[in-house]
């Protein structure tokens, strides 16, 4: 049976296989490498125009996401091939052929051996002991308490606002915050505020970066609570691995904490979130 490539490209079964493989490549590596590559491409245009470099960061995709996406793609493929009677019949053809066709006996036997072995291997991979810590299921932004005690004083989170925003010169607070940051926060949160300080690689969970995805989603009161209470003050849903962040209320003064918050938002170039009713996960 010698058929041209176009036969296979038009056959629903091989189309399905092709789409599945392509999606895997896209999910596994596309998400990781495409955005930065695109960013660089766009930069080729924006940079000469004086708009600066476009930076679209990405990172390896976690396994849980790969599994989730591939399951979705598989469901979609099944829907596609079975949605049309003719297509569904042709899709089943090769499967049926492998099962019954005498000429494909070798392939059949090979598959009948390979398939159980594959399942067994996957099961083994799942069940074997590893030295890595179990999958972390922390909530990064835990629900804030309605109130907490700051140095023995009870503070209502909803009534907490940054006093430095209304008093004194913001410029000075910013400089004071910078001093606090570089004296205390730098080793973990890093010079670039990207959460990659010298010590960062030793911690799990890793220190957070300060950017659009983190502090821009939070109110200043929330950030104050996190700084003041640190890892020990995290609620239960953030366990099992509480962060290594110290409870800064024992080290910094209230003004120092507020000033470093001013510094963080200024430096990240984002606005703190105001308390609204929007939820989300």
């Amino acid at each position: 049976m010698n058929r041209g490539a176009s036969y296979y490209l038009k056959h629903p079964f091989w189309q399905a296989v092709l789409v599945l493989l392509a999606s895997y490549v896209l999910v596994k590596w596309g998400i990781e490498y495409l955005p930065p590559a695109l960013g660089s491409l766009v930069s080729l245009i924006t940079e000469p125009l004086g708009l600066g470099r476009v930076n679209w960061p990405s990172a390896p995709v976690p396994r849980s996401i790969v599994v989730q996406y591939m399951l979705t793609v598989m469901v979609a493929i099944l829907i596609y091939v079975s949605e049309n009677e003719e297509r569904w019949r042709r899709f089943k053809e090769p499967i049926r052929a492998v099962m019954v066709e005498p000429s494909l006996k070798n392939l059949r036997v090979a598959l009948l051996i390979l398939f159980p072995v594959l399942v067994g291997w996957a099961t083994y991979q799942q069940a074997k002991g590893t030295v890595s810590a179990p999958v972390g299921l922390r909530t990064i932004h835990p629900a804030a308490p309605t109130q907490f005690t700051f140095r023995g004083r009870t503070v209502l989170l909803s009534e907490l606002s940054n006093p430095l925003r209304t008093t004194g010169s913001l410029e000075e607070h910013y400089r004071e915050g910078m001093r606090v940051y570089y004296q205390n926060c730098l080793p973990c949160h890093g010079d670039l505020l990207n959460g990659r300080g010298h010590f960062a690689h030793g911690f799990n969970p890793a220190p957070l970066p300060f950017d659009v995805s983190t502090i821009a989603q939070l109110s200043e009161a929330f950030v104050f609570w996190r700084i003041a209470k640190g890892g020990p003050g995290l609620p239960r849903e953030s366990q099992p691995w509480n962060s290594a962040m110290p409870a800064w209320e024992n080290i910094l003064t209230e003004e120092e904490i507020w000033s470093v918050i001013v510094f963080l938002y200024e430096q990240a170039g984002v606005e703190p979130r105001r308390l609204t009713e929007e939820g989300g996960h």
């Binding site: 849980s64 299921l137 922390r138 909530t139 239960r236 849903e237």
Partner: peptide
């Protein structure tokens, strides 16, 4: 069951 199991105490 796969997602984090949080119980409200």
């Amino acid at each position: 069951h796969i997602i984090p199991q949080l119980q409200s105490e």
